[in-house]
Nucleic acid binder design. Sequence first.
RNA 1: GCGCGGUUAGCUCAGCGGUAGAGCACCUCCCUUACAAGGAGGGGGUCGUAGGUUCGAGUCCUGCACCGCGCACCA
Length: 893
Amino acid sequence: MEKVYNPSYVEEKWIDRWQKSKIFSPNIDKTKKPFTVVIPPPNITGALHMGHALNNTLQDIIVRYHRMKGENTYWVVGTDHGGIATQNVMEKILKKENVNKNDIGRENFLKRMWSWYRECGDTILNQLKKLGCSIDFSKENVRFTMDEERTKAVISAFYQLWKNDLIYRGKRMINWCPRCYTALSDIEVEYEEEKSKLWYIRYYLEDKTGYIVVATTRPETMLGDTAVCVNPLDERYKNLIGKYLILPIVGRKIKVIADERIDMGFGTGAVKITPAHDPLDYEIAQKHFLDLVVVISDDGRMINCPDKYLGMKIFKAREEIVGDLKNSNLIEKEEDYVHNVGKCYRCNSHIEPLVSEQWFVKTKPLAQKAIEVINSNKIEFYPEKWKKMLLEWLINIEDWCISRQIWWGHRIPAYYCKTCSNKGIITNSKGEVVKIIMEKGAKPIVSEIKPANCPECGSIDLVQDPDVLDTWFSSALWPFSVFGWPKQTEQLKYFYPTSVLVTGYEILYLWVARMIMSGLFHMNEIPFSKVYVHGIVRDRHGQKMSKSKGNVIDPLEIMQKYGTDAMRFTLAINAGSGKDIPFSENSIVGGRNFINKLYNVSRFLFINIKDEKENELQINNLDLSDKWILSRLYNVYSNYQRLMNEYMLSEALDLIYGFVWDEFCDWYIELSKIYLSGNERIQKISIILNVIKNSIKMLHPFIPFVTQEIYDSLKKYINENFEFITQSHIYVYNFYDQDSVKNMEVLMEIIKEIRTLRSEFSIHPAKEINVIISSNNDDNLHLVKDYELYIKHLAKIKNIDYSLMYGVKTIRGFAKGCQIYIIVENDMDADKQKIRIAKEIESLKISISKWKSMLSNSKFIEKAPQSEVNRIEELVKENTLKLDKLKEMISEL
RNA sequence: GCGCGGUUAGCUCAGCGGUAGAGCACCUCCCUUACAAGGAGGGGGUCGUAGGUUCGAGUCCUGCACCGCGCACCA
């Protein structure tokens, strides 16, 4: 065995053997309750990033933990077609080839997409394998949101919702991304602050007797204005309501109307109304029956306006219009102004609110059921704060726009009769349907399979809706579509509902909420009973990682350099309470060091073990340190289980980390060295074996490779015949001895005090010393005498005497009621000793007087619990004694 | 504007009613045959701010400031 753990060799070996053994395959066993997790399917947009590494590490920890508890676990894997995001990736690839997607047409584009899927999907699965995920990666167990079964599920779900009147097609104001050239749902718009201007524009009254000044951040939309609106209570404008204004540039006559939604305090209190391009204006326009003048097209250019601006991009038009208004002296002033601008969550372009015909899901009735199950705690959230967030969102939910004007996705299962709906079906030069306009006669026929003919006229000339569904529509079905729904498969019956969903908080609304709604509607049952919500991996400065910032850390590089276990360890230990994780290469070193430590302590065992086997615990043979370490192990294991069951994964890991490193390695192993050549060796080896075995089992969910590797070497010494550690179970001796824990602490304190003295008085670490220990505390003195060997060994002591000698030069210390004298040759550092002791006396005095004043406070005595009073009294007693001893020691110097 | 978090050692955070903790970083000593990716020791914080409750407050309550996030508005 090498001195330093070499992860890459070990990892490759076990990945291969795990996959070949099929231990992660689904297994329907009706005598057992399953523990099921479905993966948040990664988008096939490229390689996995740090966020995936975190998400899947956490899932693997949970799955492996439950597998080792003996539960029938199944972690379902798959990938997501990723709609807009993936289409954008392909568009970029095509751009490099100097190809426009419209040139090659829909069909060819989709061919390219499918070959991309095959390539990228495999890459992702391989990376999950590398991460150590306990997933069966064989083909028949990998899902894709657009494979045949999942597509059936999507179409069926759409049809069911339509039949239940929960899907409709309608003309509404939606969020339009002119870059991606598609509608988006409300939650796919991200708001960002932007510096802009607020322009104050004069709109003259028809009779030229005056003007109203309106303030706007978007002067280009004025071309589509059809009114100016004021608050009905606004005294400034009261007598202008109902009068007409002349819209500058355009010359259109527009009315002054009143609506209480106008804020009198903002700008001038008068608002230009552009019904076609602003959500609030649209609402006001509907109430007041205003005309809708569309002046911005799908691709973000000016239309339906004076020739001068025709075809201009929005920002250019804005510039021009402001210039022209200035020339006509119609701009009263312009102010700097910071406001929120909607951006596309996929390409960061400015969103245009546009009126458009789209498909929607009526979400209110669906949300109602979701609210009920969350309120009744049928679904629990870890950490719990997300429950409230989700509830609030569900309560205020708006209808969900599910149609997208892109090509990559599930095509909407709606058909139109060319004969009946002729005017509403828009085609391009290739004859491909590009748009359906219902208001011109198109009527959708929603059907799971393409209807043979039109139910109205019998025509066989039917065309399918060109739009595809929001990628989140198929994601919403994931927890049951993965099991073959709508077919009532054995898997579906057995594995649904799933046990826990592990996901980042950024897709709580986009995904989690919708899975709950879909699960309740289609399955009439929650999709999962627990949601574990984690944070986002950020860089060391807390910045979100992004390609444009250049601060992305590639998990594969990290795994290559430090090992997968080290990365998993670092992610897991920092993932406490769902917080964001600051990650840097630096932060991984601690993880790597721990893995190496664990590897080396097992190496210590293998170097020292001969042909001993782990044997039954002989309680009578245990010495103090044995009882202590076994008690600690038992205590750690109890807490480990509690923390893991409450999904406090980082706390659980931290607990074992401390136990293994500080208690086991630094104390128990060091002590065991005394005995390894004597009669006690079998006992010691057996305990070391037991502690290592149980420690690696507790650690296995977090760091699967190194623990598997150690387990493999351990196998021949223990009474287990599992091939893999993940098949084994933890069994810790139910042993806890309070006295041993207490006594061990006393000895440890004394040893630490001697070490401190050595260090402070520059006694070389290798130099063996003689000490005298005396005490009035008989218990502790006996303890010291009984375990003299421990102290000698761990503090490098040749001889310990128990009675004071006169005429020897010493360095003095005090711990746990014992005075400690290190015998030294020369009169060294009397002053330094005095200062050291004096300092301690000072701080003791302060503490003691504080406690004494507490005890002399009648209110404290009266109101504080008796146990507390006793504790303080005990402290005073103990520390007064210590103080006396210290004073005595200082006077002797 | 409403809501949710946060503010504790240089950094990342734990502690949530009884003498301020951990890891990393830093300083000193040590290659002691499991591990220098190690061991031993050490320095370092009036716990954001102002009040309040309490015998006692990082710890509970209220106001404020600052940071982050979500939702709404955003002419």
